[in-house]
Design a protein around this nucleic acid. Structure first.
Lengths: 155, 155
DNA sequence: GTCAAATAGTTACATATGAAACTAATAGTT
DNA sequence: AACTATTAGTTTCATATGTAACTATTTGAC
């Protein structure tokens, strides 16, 4: 009794999770090379800089929540950036476990340069889409994020 | 002369490359846990299986091209899957450098199980979108992929 | 106040990953 | 045929990353 001939219905290159992953990696890698080349920052360090510039005094845990990084990655990025002279850490007066993070003047300088650069890159990317398409994308990503959210029933 | 107050224009959480990355990672991690839990396959191994099942006799280099993996990752995934008894390698008769890869019967068995599972997961994901939205997504990803393609002028 | 449990963050260890060097085979040039 | 350049794939090494264990501090129950 021969097996039914397997006609593959799965073409990896059309597989949504795969395509999303390739797309996202392409974009991330491209942008990361900017930060790295110009300022020697990794993508994680850039994320830490982005939120710390926006919220001086933020704690490591909060950075993790805002950037979707785990606490080890946050801790390492912070350590490196203190080394580089871009970040400063104080211990919270009301809670000795908590650290409060601030950009140093040098860090602030980089921040002021990097933000327009990041926005420019995003612009460049987004401008390949029409206004309408940008709104669509917004909407679709929201729906997919919901559907994939970890607190939904298992697939 | 005080600095101009910096009103941050960058909200990381609204930053497109960041959002794409988080979304893609969420989905990948979720799916990877399926393959891993059920069959002990990593995401790379699953990709190798997907294309080898579809094109028996494929070479490592071709796998790399079809899966957007670099040759080291392909080599390692293949080695592991041969170990596991899922893959078989022959040396091409016409080119001694080239290997030809085939799923073993055991590998084929897993393939037959994993493909419907993968398609199911994608279904689940895609079904959070309407038909129309799915087409939009298709279209938007294509445009973004073009815009981010590495052989375009640097940002 | 004392002690167990929770929280913030770091360190240690084991594994994953990428770049570059390497091996083996083929192709192309003379 | 001999020699160089190219290609397929593997190995090595240095770095990145995640999990779990750990330290320090605070919170809450008693």
């Amino acid at each position: 009794m021969p097996d039914i001939e397997n006609v593959s219905l799965l073409r990896l290159r059309e597989f949504l999770p795969y395509r999303l992953s390739v797309l996202s990696n392409t974009i991330s890698t491209r942008i990361a090379s900017l930060y790295d080349r110009e300022f020697g920052l990794s993508i994680w360090q850039w994320r830490v800089m982005a939120v710390t510039g926006d919220r001086p005094g933020i704690s490591a845990t909060e950075i993790g929540q805002l950037t979707a990084m785990d606490k080890v990655a946050v801790s390492r990025a912070i350590a490196a950036m203190i080394q580089m002279g871009y970040l400063e850490r104080k211990t919270s007066e009301t809670d000795g476990r908590r650290s409060q993070l601030f950009l140093t003047p040098a860090g602030r300088d980089v921040y002021e340069l990097i933000v327009p650069m990041a926005l420019g890159a995003e612009q460049e990317l987004a401008s390949s889409l029409t206004e309408d398409e940008q709104k669509q994308l917004e909407h679709l990503m929201g729906k997919l994020a919901d559907a994939a959210s970890p607190d939904r029933p298992l697939w």
